[in-house]
Write a protein that binds this DNA or RNA. Structure first.
Lengths: 238, 238
DNA sequence: TAGCCTGAACTGGTATATCAAATACTCATG
DNA sequence: CATGAGTATTTGATATACCAGTTCAGGCTA
């Protein structure tokens, strides 16, 4: 028979916890979509200014201007776009100096995470780091640069996760979107892939031995080397 | 006589570059005012939930809801405020864990700044660090805790400035608003003032000697000690 | 009197209207 | 044909109107 319970509507406070389903605000949806779109745009290959149009976005997303504006507001604060009053909203292209600063911040936060990881991360989780490179043990990474680049990036994210700091994880997330493009672009230069895999293994060893200072120093230096590399060779920036 | 030049309006493209004067958007004004108000609210002494009301703020600031909402949006993303749909907007009280994570991030960024400072900052600017503590050379800082606390905070900001990274300076600015309250609250505990002034002097010496590794390590450890102190003694949090 | 139901008032979310500034275009004039 | 003034259009900033949940008080019922 149809019981009272079976007739209960989804809106009721019953057992069917569909809170998250119903309402993700349009603002957040627009924000996520726009951010992803920007992250996937190769902003450094195009030369012309990348301008966004509120009306266009609003029609494309099928919502009114308000959520779009709020989403753009957030993206502006995160430094992904810049709005110039009465001119338009533009995707920002980071300068070489800004990218180097981002890598330096990344180095600071990742090395701190390595330090914290030696103090708190369980052995099992540290051990899993090695598996990221299993498939490259036998063949040189130069033969699968794309796959290796992904593993490389995953490695750095894993260290940050091992540090156990939610704040560092959050703070690095946005940096990551920018740094990712740079890591991809530089992995094929100067035999960096082969050298980086050696350094990664040394970092893993230091973590396993709980050598706090060494793990921290190696991690920092590894990423600062990337900054130095960008400084010397990435003249396509700026 | 009134020359053409003297009649030139501020908007002209002449020599008097006062473009930015004209209009600070209401959103930015509301943002600045609200942020300052929140920063100056001692959120850790009150026990009840601190709730903001959009309509109230809108009347207090004399603008409509739109700029207020946009400002609150930004503050929410920075973690100062949390909006719960149909419930209200609340000033967030950071948990002890979150505060420790903030201090760790601070330690990572300040030590990176110290490193960069040893590499790039001019001698003259490093030398000025000593003047921050001139007035405490003869009398123990415990006698002017408030003044010393301010000098203490200024010292840490100065190191970050010496690093020369705009990104680090920006990133620490929000952390500072939170960490400041903690530094103030802990400076009077465990004779921390006297100990900290010694450590500060050692950091200055390391910077002056351009000892990159030492300056970095001392700076990091000094701030990590604060984190450990908070972990042990600040049970008023949470 | 205790408990439940209802509805009014309030909340933030969204959509739309209005305003002002800056640009672009047109047309008249030299 | 070139130029400049004036107007129309565009666009971002702001204000306002409307909507949908949530809360809570007050009254009704058992």
């Amino acid at each position: 028979m149809t019981s009272i319970a079976s007739l209960r509507q989804p809106g009721g406070a019953g057992a069917l916890r569909l809170g998250p389903l119903n309402s993700v605000s349009l603002r957040d949806q627009a924000y996520a979509l726009l951010k992803e779109a920007i992250a996937n745009t190769d902003i450094y290959s195009e030369r012309e200014l990348l301008r966004l149009d509120e009306r266009e976005l609003m029609q494309a997303l099928g919502v009114s201007r308000t959520p779009v504006r709020e989403a753009l507001s957030l993206l502006e604060q995160e430094g992904f776009v810049r709005t110039v009053p009465r001119r338009g909203i533009f995707i920002v292209r980071k300068s070489k100096r800004e990218i180097i600063e981002m890598i330096q911040v990344w180095a600071a936060l990742e090395s701190m995470s390595a330090r914290l990881a030696t103090l708190h991360a369980p052995d099992a989780e540290i051990g899993e780091l090695r598996h990221l490179f299993d498939e490259f043990q036998n063949s040189p990474p130069s033969e699968h640069l794309d796959e290796y680049s992904d593993a490389n990036i995953a490695f750095h994210q894993a260290i940050i996760r091992l540090g156990g700091s939610q704040l560092i994880e959050d703070a690095t997330h946005n940096l990551f979107l920018h740094v990712r493009a740079i890591r991809r672009a530089t992995i094929s230069q100067n035999n960096r892939a082969a050298r980086s895999i050696i350094e990664h293994l040394k970092i893993i060893e230091a973590l396993e031995r709980r050598d706090t200072e060494l793990a921290e120093r190696l991690t920092r230096q590894h990423t600062l080397d990337l900054a130095a590399h960008v400084d010397r060779y990435c003249d396509f920036l700026d």
